[in-house]
């Protein structure tokens, strides 16, 4: 757990940091942050509870507990990461622990949207390269420099072409990943749409 947490803001074009591998397919958001920690009205204290049950059962051997990973910020995962519940508490907990970007074989849809909405770029890469990176992290440090303009990740020995959804990449580069103001720019269009929808008129609840 890092001491100070600052929420990302504005344009995100480069992420540099140490990788932390987490092996497993279908790691769901209940595991990332168990439901009992959802009893809160803000996200502030979630970082310390990330993977709480998995960490307890591994008694200090979980990647998030290893001393060598304490400053890591790029999470390397396998397939369908973040499946299950839509709880944004999951990426919020990862972010508050110190994760700034995730590279994986694949991500669940809602988890992916939540990451984008809070400023965590998620990249995909083939199983082969993911496993290589995870193995590499076993006995050495892997530092990556990720450039969102080119989608390239570089280390001393590696040059990787990461994949990221084009809409997400553009939103990070322009700073519009925090979508509210961009959406509100179209206020007139929203009002027009509201007036055009057939069901608005025939719903008795909304008279």
């Amino acid at each position: 757990m890092k001491s100070e947490f600052t929420q990302p803001i504005g344009k995100i074009s480069n992420i540099n940091g140490q990788c932390i591998p987490l092996i497993g397919n279908d790691i769901d958001t209940d595991r990332i942050i168990p439901a009992r920690f959802l009893k809160c009205v803000n996200f502030d204290s979630l970082g310390e509870s990330v993977f709480e049950d998995d960490r307890k059962s591994l008694k200090g051997r979980h990647p998030f507990d290893l001393e060598k990973n304490k400053n890591a910020s790029i999470l390397i995962v396998n397939s369908n990461f973040g499946c299950g519940s839509s709880r944004e508490h999951a990426p919020q907990a990862l972010m508050r622990w110190g994760i700034k970007a995730i590279i994986g074989e694949s991500f669940a849809d809602i988890f992916y949207s939540n990451c984008i909405a809070i400023g965590i770029p998620c990249f995909t890469l083939s199983k082969k390269y993911i496993e290589q990176m995870q193995n590499y992290c076993d006995d050495q440090f892997l530092f990556l420099e990720i450039d969102l303009k080119t989608s390239l990740a570089k280390s001393n020995d590696l040059n990787l072409n990461l994949e990221i959804r084009e809409s997400s990449r553009k939103m990070f580069l322009s700073g519009e990943w925090d979508a509210t103001s961009r959406l509100l720019d179209n206020e007139n269009l929203i009002d027009n749409k509201f007036n055009q929808l057939p069901y608005i008129k025939f719903n008795s609840h909304y008279s």
Binding site: S86, R182, L184, N186, I190
Partner: peptide, 16 residues
């Protein structure tokens, strides 16, 4: 949707 999108729906009635 996640909480940030709940915020967007409350504020704009739309999401990206």
């Amino acid at each position: 949707i996640g909480t940030s999108q709940v915020r967007d729906v409350l504020a704009t009635q739309t999401i990206a």
